[in-house]
Design a protein around this nucleic acid. Structure first.
Lengths: 262, 262
DNA sequence: CTTGACCTTGACGCTCCGTCAAGGTCTTGA
DNA sequence: TCAAGACCTTGACGGAGCGTCAAGGTCAAG
């Protein structure tokens, strides 16, 4: 039997057989006068045994060990650990399919799949706010941040605002807020418009949102760097506003003016 | 944000991020004066979105397509086909675990895991025959052949002999048969011992086995080459015996002498 | 100023083979 | 008998998704 026949009989390629010789998984057989490999039934059995193990998922070196160990004693252990690994994979697969189903659902009814917010409440919030006209850089940045922050935190922050979106006037003011933040871009950091905007924001956001933000804020949620990164993307005046906002939410926000002396 | 922070935030290595740039999965960000890559929140969101898709099992080029399609319209299709693929994987996993469980069982009680016969009846047959002393080359070859032939065929051939193994005398004669086949090695192909052994074998094997062998013989079961290969492993006299045996089982074996004029 | 933690590009390694390439060999049919 | 076509040989590269040096340059802290 030559290599092609052997390979065909077991259902692998000749390259595979040669590779198995190369890595010592199968013994090199005798050669014919012309240098061809000549195989026997023994090789056929060895190869098909090896393939069974490979197809069960063992790596080639594990197979080599099993084939080398005339007893194959610890094959039991190997199999047991493989089974454990498979069970774990099954769980992961099931979890993946669950997530896929979720994603599928989101793709179907809400069409924003790309920027993939981690929570349906966030999706709803930004869908509505963007529909109302908040499409500038600051709205985008806000959305990006919320897409990254753990969704439990983010929704604690956003959820209290959802009912308010029924009020058209409120929504308009939210949009204006984003808008004014954008327009802060070219302003001087010491301009009173900065503090004024922060005041308006503190006024606009529901208490619960502010409390959620202060208790579990960006620093503890996303790591220190997150705040820094966000602020670095802003112009100086915008950065000043952001820092001020954070500081004011951290202190009980009812006590606003006394503590801030800068 | 520099590459290390970005990577840590998303939970990948810096090498991964650079690789994603290299393959165009993520846009190269701005560089600082010193050449460091500087990332923004946008990149953070893009990367973590990409990772979600990768962890769901998409290949990197699929992820690139999804990210490139700003709309991501056919993401629905992709997700659907992925789900199908996952379902298929789940089935395969389940099947693998079943096979693993079988193997585990075989490893536990019958310890012959190495030569891994495909059928418990074959295992029993050879366990008993070898225990009775058939350990020579011919017995080994027979086992190898049976290990390779589809197990349904092989067991149709072997099963009728199992009950006979209860008879010690019968078993002894089986062992002698293997033995004599081995001792045919150095004999001349024309020696009358060849035909004599074949007669004894035909006499010894149960009719059902012979019928199974003739109806569904090695040629149709394992392919032409199998017979040739086996015969090439034998000495001339053994080969002659094998050929004679095959021929005699093919013809109704009750009519033995008349047809064979060679 | 030195250390140590980062960053840069470039290159090789890993698994399990697939896929040429550049030959030599065997079988078959005209 | 000779050519064609199917096989065989070794050797080398490719590839998916990064890990892991190597040989430098940068940055913050002590």
């Amino acid at each position: 039997m030559r290599i092609g026949e052997l390979a065909a009989a077991v259902g692998v390629s000749t390259r595979t057989v040669r590779y198995y010789h190369q890595v010592g998984l199968l013994p090199e057989p005798e050669r014919s006068a012309s240098g061809y490999r000549v195989y026997s039934m023994r090789d056929l059995v060895l190869l098909s045994h090896a393939r069974r193990l490979v197809e069960l998922g063992l790596g080639l070196d594990e197979v080599r060990q099993v084939l080398a160990d005339e007893e194959g004693r610890d094959l039991g252990e190997i199999v047991a650990s493989m089974d454990a690994a498979l069970a774990l994979q099954q769980e992961r697969l099931a979890a993946q399919r669950r997530r896929l189903a979720e994603l599928q659902e989101r793709v179907r009814d809400g069409r924003l799949a790309l920027d993939d917010l981690p929570d349906p409440q966030l999706v709803e919030f930004f869908t509505r706010v963007e529909a109302a006209g908040a499409t500038g850089p600051m709205a985008r940045l806000d959305r990006d941040v919320l897409a990254f922050v753990p969704s439990a935190d983010a929704s604690r922050w956003i959820a209290p605002m959802l009912p308010l979106l029924g009020d058209e006037d409120y929504t308009r003011r939210l949009v204006r807020m984003y808008d004014e933040f954008d327009r802060l871009a070219d302003v001087d950091p010491d301009d009173p418009a900065v503090a004024a905007l922060v005041d308006r924001i503190l006024d606009l956001l529901p208490e619960e949102s502010l409390r959620a933000l202060s208790e579990h804020d960006l620093v503890t949620a996303g790591g220190e760097f997150l705040v820094d990164t966000v602020i670095e993307e802003l112009t100086p005046a915008q950065a000043a506003a952001a820092r001020l906002l954070i500081e004011r939410t951290r202190a009980p926000h009812t006590v606003t003016q006394e503590e801030n002396e800068e």
